[in-house]
Design a protein around this nucleic acid. Structure first.
Lengths: 336, 336
DNA sequence: CCGTTGTTTGTGTACGTTCACATTCCCGTC
DNA sequence: GACGGGAATGTGAACGTACACAAACAACGG
């Protein structure tokens, strides 16, 4: 009984029913000033009645503005990145923007290029890059993106295009805390070598130790997982020539603590452990984890607001947020 | 020195440089069969050379196909949902689709409607709903969506539009395991009342106890967080009239275990604990957590493949995936 | 009463692509 | 050597919207 093909109502349908021209409808939609209140209301009534929805594609085509922010992520679903994505989505929506997500399939150049191509095909107006590998940032630099973008990682190469938590400062904070407690033999399990954050946290660790002329050690390169922390821990604890561990993130810290218990060591009695990120679970580890807190939602929000001001022609101040040390029960002075 | 406004190259630019008509270029782009290999190559070369990218908006406008799958999520960034989103993005991309994410600001009807409106304005071809509250599914039912959609939660109301892990079976699995160990006084901390999964897991818990004529108790309604598990645990353990706990998710299990230690109880010596989800960290809790594993990536993949077959006119089999009990060290027979 | 100004509304066109249809080309066949 | 017929290519729409410009209308002062 229904007509064969129900075409969605368009701006002309609304105009006809409201007894105005399509342009008037367009003006109502775009909140143009010069429109009589009565006609505006009439148009709005019709829109409501027939359930008209503006066609985004047509809009995007004619304005060449998509009102979309692209988010480029790595393939994994870590706590930090996903928290930031959520914050980005929120901030974007409040500003009338949508987000579209593309993840890179691998760290290789073709994959990165494909992902950015896809975003550009969608005519995103700005891009947030969460993919935290060095190579990704390098690739982005080379591909000279035509839209404003911001990276949530601070590569030195990134310069002024980043909005991030100061990872070096975080690494220093963690290490300094252990030093202050009296530890002199401090080990570090880092993230993967090509990750920007891993590199920076490691640098903070090394700087803090060097400042006090303490022995530095070649950090173990991990993969951020609790599993790695565990197995690396089992291995390292056979020697146990250190009394404190700074783990590159909370998950590895958790795995390492697990290894401590399995090796008959008590935390923090025999071994102090500091993590990084302050995931919500960290407060309930056994023992509750001393860690470095990053404000991921804040980063996401700031990234969006930064992009939005740039889109409006302003110049925004990129920059860094300071992390914060959260002291819990996993650290104590070394046993003597 | 550069021209004022650099317009992106379009299909006609390509045509001119390749010495063909714009339609021929279009045919190359759409992999039409009747095209000579030599001309096809010539066009592709030009495309490569000038860095031409098809305009998605124009495409979407004329075909009224956006090649986009919309994802509707809740505002939180839990492990399960985000893992599924990643899987969805992957599966979609392999099929040539993009995803756009919208989260609902609150559980209220207007917010849900706004989110769905936004997705429809973007002309998404299909929708994946991850928002796990009962009200969201009800709202979706009422709003009669015109595109195929699938929910990753199985509300009974959902019927055949869901692709999910059987949460009731999971709840039974967890509870049955505790019964098999000899526990008769089993407590349950559930998720929030209006969450579909919370309800279903609770139902599995109640069913398993009823089957054996064991005492059921009014479950505590939590909020999924480790914090809640901790504080609820401190409270519950003042009575300690139970020997086993089935927590609605791993985070609450972690918090509860924390409360056990703080209350001087050993896990699993004095108290057995089972979680739900099997987040990667669960294997390294203290003690490693017995839990119910959900295959989130699989769910995401299946949801997409289901939608894609529906988009091609086929009828797909919705359905459920069985969860799996992972036995670790947090459960043991009750102390006698 | 007319020109001036400002407000409100209407008309043509462009955005970049695909679809339907028309045309040309090439090759084998009678 | 003209004739079919399929393969390859070209031409004119159309999708739904916003922008530039034009027109209608009202208000106001000289």
């Amino acid at each position: 009984m229904e007509p064969e093909k129900v075409r969605a109502p368009n701006i002309r349908d609304v105009a006809r029913l409201a007894g105005v021209s399509y342009q008037t409808v367009s003006r109502v939609l775009n909140e143009h000033v010069s429109i009589r209140e009565s006609t505006k209301q009439r148009v709005l009534d019709v829109i409501e009645e027939i359930g008209y929805r503006p066609n985004q594609a047509a809009r995007a085509l004619v304005t060449s503005r998509s009102r979309t922010i692209g988010v480029l992520t790595a393939q994994n679903a870590d706590y930090g990145p996903t928290t930031s994505v959520t914050a980005i989505e929120h901030a974007a929506r409040e500003a009338g923007y949508r987000i579209t997500i593309t993840s890179i399939a691998s760290n290789e150049y073709p994959s990165i290029k494909a992902a950015l191509d896809q975003l550009q095909m969608q005519a995103v107006e700005a891009i947030v890059v969460i993919a935290p590998q060095v190579r990704v940032l390098e690739a982005i630099r080379e591909l000279d993106i035509t839209v404003p973008y911001v990276t949530l990682q601070n590569a030195d190469l990134g310069g002024d295009r980043s909005m991030s938590v100061d990872q070096v400062a975080g690494g220093r904070l963690a290490t300094q805390h252990l030093i202050d407690l009296g530890h002199t033999e401090i080990m570090h399990i880092s993230g993967p070598q090509d990750w920007i954050e891993a590199e920076a946290r490691m640098q903070g660790y090394l700087e803090a130790l060097n400042d006090k002329d303490l022995r530095t050690r070649a950090p173990i390169l991990g993969d951020w997982s609790a599993h790695f922390g565990y197995y690396a821990g089992l291995e390292l604890l056979r020697l146990k020539d250190f009394t404190a561990m700074f783990a590159g993130n909370d998950q590895m810290a958790l795995g390492f603590i697990h290894a401590c218990w399995d090796s008959g060591l008590s935390v923090p009695g025999d071994m102090s452990v500091v993590g990084f990120d302050d995931i919500p679970e960290a407060a309930h580890f056994f023992p509750p984890l001393t860690t470095v807190r990053q404000n991921f939602p804040e980063i996401g929000r700031r990234a969006v607001s930064l992009l939005l001001t740039e889109l409006q022609g302003g110049t925004a101040t990129h920059g860094q947020i300071m992390p914060e040390l959260v002291i819990r029960r996993s650290t104590a002075p070394p046993a003597r």
